[in-house]
Amino acid sequence: MLIAEESSGLEDQLGTDTVVSVADLHKAYGRTEAVRGVSFEVRRREIFGILGSNGAGKTTVVEILQGLRDRTSGEVSVLGLDPAREKNRLRRGIGSQLQSSALPDRLRVGEAVTLFARARHTPVDVAATMTTWGLTPLRDRAFGSLSGGEQQRLFVALALLGDPELVLLDELTTGLDPSARHATWDLLHQVRERGTTVVLVTHFMDEAETLCDRVAVMDRGQVVACDTPAALTAHHGGPVTITFSTTDGYRPDHLLAVPGVESATARGGQVTVTGESAAAVRVAAALVERGVSPVDYRTHYPSLEDVFLSMTGHRLSEKVSS
């Protein structure tokens, strides 16, 4: 694939639904290779997640997409442009919130929006922006006095000034309390409804599962899996586990005949059944037929945490050497 100088030519090659295309991307710092052969595509109007532990190479990839860092090798197209050669043109069409984003403590919210609006290449209605993102009541508040959730709301608003086609958000909710995190998730849903394409870098499994249409799982500088959260958990997350309690003497042998069930064991009045996702409903129906109605019937579906462990051999929170 060739990276064209003009956006129209490359969009013809990739298709108008491709906003970002990365092929065999490498980034080395001396002998240390931070990104090793990464490839993925981001489609228009989706929330695309890049998931991985700290040091996996996520931020490096996003900085290359913005033209903030040069690649060692590989091919990259963002909005039909090469970030390494067409940085100025590219920045007119994207918005971003970096992992280390910060503003002067004494800068007021209204001043920040006005200042950043002047830097955009398209006219920005500051008052409308303040209203859209619920910043009007905070207009005269200094940045340093804002809560974590309020600061993130401001950062999202600044990233979306001028209605960019693509916005890149790096660790948007790190350090926020649960309430502020969920409020920030609501903001991301609003961004999606506006038709903006989002690349979301995160190391939070629940965030990726809740927000993302597709997820690229990174480990040690490589993409080890890329698909929808549902497909990843179905194919790589392991079996569904069903547990329930019964009275003494119950044997679950009959559940082995239920389609999709892989195992059924009983120990001390606790029954554990494993199988494919559809087995949960079938097992429940089989129990009703036998007149067994446990009050603590519980189903554990595999999560992205299970996928990450299966694909990498370690948990997301574990530190591993390259």
Rank of each mutant, 00 (worst) to 15 (best):
G275Q: 01
V240M: 07
T265Y: 01
E289W: 00
G195Q: 06
E262D: 09
V261C: 10
T246Y: 05
T247G: 13
V261F: 11
T299M: 08
L256R: 15
H254L: 11
R214T: 12
H189Y: 14
L188I: 15
V199R: 02
S245N: 03
E276P: 01
M218R: 00
D213C: 05
V261W: 08
P252I: 09
G249C: 08
T233K: 15
G260K: 08
D253R: 15
V215C: 01
V283W: 01
D253N: 14
P252V: 05
A264C: 10
A231R: 15
Q190R: 14
D248I: 03
A231P: 00
S263R: 14
Q270P: 02
V283Y: 00
V215A: 02
R192Y: 03
A279P: 08
V273K: 04
A285D: 02
A257F: 02
T299A: 10
R194F: 06
V215Q: 03
T196F: 10
A230I: 12
S263G: 09
E209I: 07
R214M: 08
S263W: 08
P259W: 14
V198H: 05
A284L: 10
T243S: 12
H203I: 09
A285H: 00
V258G: 12
E276M: 09
V201W: 02
V224M: 12
H254F: 15
T274C: 04
E209A: 11
G260N: 08
H235Y: 06
A257D: 14
Y297F: 15
E276L: 14
G269H: 05
L211N: 08
G260V: 06
V201H: 05
L200W: 11
S245M: 01
A257R: 14
L232H: 12
T196L: 08
M205H: 07
T210P: 01
D213V: 07
H300K: 05
A266V: 15
I242S: 09
Q222C: 12
H203D: 06
L188R: 10
A264W: 01
L188Q: 06
A278M: 07
Q190M: 08
D248V: 11
V224P: 13
P229W: 12
T228K: 11
T246F: 04
A208R: 09
H300L: 11
S293N: 11
L211H: 12
G237Y: 04
M218I: 05
A284Y: 00
P259D: 06
S293M: 07
P302G: 03
H235P: 10
G238H: 10
G237L: 06
D227L: 11
G237D: 05
T299C: 14
H254I: 09
R192P: 03
A280L: 02
Q190K: 13
T272H: 01
R192S: 12
A225P: 15
L200M: 10
G275P: 09
A234S: 13
T274A: 05
D253P: 14
V224Y: 13
I242M: 10
R298H: 13
F204Q: 11
P239R: 11
S245W: 00
F204A: 08
A278Y: 09
D206Q: 15
G195N: 06
L287Q: 00
V283G: 01
A216G: 13
P239D: 11
E207K: 13
E262H: 15
F244I: 01
T274W: 05
T233F: 04
A284G: 03
A266K: 04
